[in-house]
């Protein structure tokens, strides 16, 4: 018995997924190198994020919780770079903390590079507290006794001897907490940090969906969502960073996905029509 020849529509419906991956790969590479720049429309969460940092006064202290590693570099790195740039513009002091070793190394190296370009001094205007294995315990400890909980910075200096946190006893002495993370750590900050400290959030796009409730209730004051949010924020800061460069490829890959969804549905309809005709 001869095998029935597949129609075009059936072949489209059963297309080998490796062809789809190849098309997507070509699409991403093309638009990563193509010199197209499209301005973003600033979304309300990013505008709120920007406005909150604009309210900072010189010398205000900010805690940055940076928990991302190489896997989410494309989304979190532009966020952290833009945040540090903005904090330096406002002459705010900041300290960075992580919850695992790889995030500590990545965030420390990034902060060193970005602050060096702008003349910020380690220990005087910024510091890195290394990593803490348990965030809940660390926050509870920092609320009551920050130097006693953290003890040493990433370079081995006692926290109580760092000029940037001179006189700081507790997390309540901070003006703001910025959580840059691909994991859902912001509920922990919301639950346990002092209520006078404002919280801003920089999640990956996937994790942002669950943060809109906190934004709506005012528990977080602003949010930068993934690379797209980073592009909007860079636009507000009038800098061209990684967010702006990556968004091209992301934009057109979304278009590609939509085109193929429509093609797939079209093929499904045509296939059904053909089968009905043959009946």
């Amino acid at each position: 018995m001869q095998a029935r020849t597949q129609t075009l529509w059936q072949r489209m419906l059963g297309i080998d997924r490796r062809w789809l991956y190849l098309i997507l790969f070509v699409n991403i590479v093309t638009f990563l190198v193509a010199p197209i720049r499209m301005p973003a429309s600033i979304s309300p969460p990013v505008q709120k994020f920007y406005d909150e940092i604009e309210k900072l006064q010189p010398g205000d202290l900010v805690m940055i919780s940076s928990n991302w590693s190489a896997s989410t570099l494309a989304e979190n790195q532009p966020q952290l770079e833009a945040v540090i740039t903005h904090l330096m513009r406002k002459q705010a002091r900041f300290t960075i903390i992580s919850i695992e070793a790889q995030s500590r190394d990545i965030s420390y190296r990034l902060a060193e590079r970005v602050t060096k370009e702008k003349g910020y001094q380690y220990g005087e205007q910024w510091a890195h507290f290394g990593f803490v294995p348990n965030l809940t315990v660390a926050i509870k400890g920092m609320v009551t006794d920050l130097p006693g909980t953290i003890k040493q910075d990433v370079r081995g200096t006692e926290v109580s001897k760092l000029p940037v946190v001179q006189g700081v006893k507790s997390l309540s002495d901070y003006k703001m907490i910025i959580d840059v993370t691909p994991s859902g750590t912001v509920p922990i900050w919301i639950s346990y940090s002092p209520k006078n400290v404002r919280i801003l959030y920089c999640p990956t796009s996937v994790m942002a969906a669950e943060a809109y409730t906190y934004l709506d209730s005012g528990q977080i004051k602003g949010m930068i969502t993934g690379a797209k949010g980073a592009q909007e924020y860079e636009q507000l800061l009038t800098v061209v960073g990684l967010g702006t460069r990556f968004m091209n490829a992301i934009s057109f890959s979304h278009v590609l996905i939509i085109v193929f969804i429509l093609l797939g549905n079209f093929a499904m309809f045509m296939n059904r029509l053909q089968q009905r005709r043959e009946e």
Partner: peptide, 11 residues
């Protein structure tokens, strides 16, 4: 949502 969240949607 896919097209709205990227700059292409604004364009």
């Amino acid at each position: 949502v896919m097209i709205g969240v990227v700059p292409l949607g604004a364009f």
